[in-house]
């Protein structure tokens, strides 16, 4: 019997790619996908055509980013799963997105507050990741950070317009803040997995992101003439698979085709 060498695989994982990054990359993927899904629900229903376009645009950026993460996660996992297997064929408790991004669109003010909280974290995170030690993650972040900078500009401008707009827009903004601010804290509260990766330096320490995030939020809220909410209890859970009730419904739509027609090519 002759010994055979293992066949080289097409998508060979670079030797440096640490398998331990898998759950973190998957978390990034789920986060971008679920928020893209929510934003895409606006398509055709936006308050004005230009903003319909803007939200579809942001959804597309996030979807593209999610695909890059899923593809990388599939490589890291190396179990033969594809981007679609990861995105479509897991149960709700296996999704690792923070609670914030699965919250329903609500009115435009809710969508804006959700987006602002996410963008302010996302942009600052990507700025660190693009200079991080993992080459593939850095490359994805390098591409995405330019998009995220635009997203943050867009949502910041809308916080300002709604805060310093009309009495009604201010009332709606206040209500959205009261509903959603409690979900912002999860973004920068590391899970045990994240803490482990932060200790190795693969993932930035979120505490280092906070000053820039805080400074930006202070600036935007001052312009919006809205007091910046402080010391809100942080709802945690999504990143460890404990989701709100909203996720199940979202997934039943997202996964409908893959679940109804298993194993087919589309």
């Amino acid at each position: 019997m002759s010994a055979t060498l293992p066949e080289p695989t097409a998508a060979a994982v670079p030797a440096s790619a640490p398998r331990s990054l898998f759950p973190f990359v998957l978390q990034l993927a789920d986060t971008s996908l679920i928020l893209a899904h929510r934003l895409s629900e606006w398509c055709g229903h936006g308050p004005v055509l230009e903003q319909d376009l803007a939200m579809a645009n942001i959804a597309l950026d996030l979807l593209g980013e999610a695909r890059s993460y899923y593809q990388y996660a599939a490589e890291l996992e190396d179990q033969g799963r594809t981007e679609d297997d990861l995105a479509y064929l897991r149960s709700a408790v296996e999704y690792r997105n923070p609670l914030l991004v699965e919250q329903p669109n609500g009115d435009f003010a809710h969508t804006i507050v959700r987006q602002f909280l996410f963008d302010n974290f996302h942009y600052h995170l990507l700025r660190e990741l693009k200079d991080g030690p993992d080459a593939q993650l850095a490359a994805i972040a390098e591409k995405s950070v330019k998009e995220a900078a635009y997203h943050l500009k867009w949502s910041s401008e809308w916080v300002i317009r709604l805060g310093d707009g009309t009495e009604e827009s201010r009332k709606r903004l206040d209500k959205a803040i009261a509903t959603l601010w409690r979900f912002g804290g999860e973004l920068t509260t590391p899970t045990e997995t994240e803490k482990g990766l932060q200790a190795t330096g693969l993932v930035p320490d979120y505490a280092t992101l906070l000053p820039a995030m805080q400074a930006h939020a202070e600036h935007v809220f001052a312009e919006a003439t809205v007091p910046l909410p402080t010391a809100v209890f942080a709802q945690l859970g999504g990143k460890t698979g404990r989701h709100s009730e909203h996720l199940g419904y979202l997934l039943s739509e997202l996964q409908y085709m893959q679940r109804t027609y298993p194993g087919l090519k589309w």
């Binding site: 996908l33 899904h37 895409s40 629900e41 398509c43 579809a56 959804a59 597309l60 979807l63 593209g64 999610a66 695909r67 899923y70 981007e83 679609d84 995105a87 479509y88 739509e253 997202l254 409908y256 085709m257 893959q258 027609y261 087919l264 589309w266």
Partner: peptide, 14 residues
């Protein structure tokens, strides 16, 4: 859009 069967199809449709 929310029910597209793959990530690629979803991107194209959106």
């Amino acid at each position: 859009i929310t029910r597209a069967p793959s990530l690629k199809r979803k991107s194209i449709l959106l």
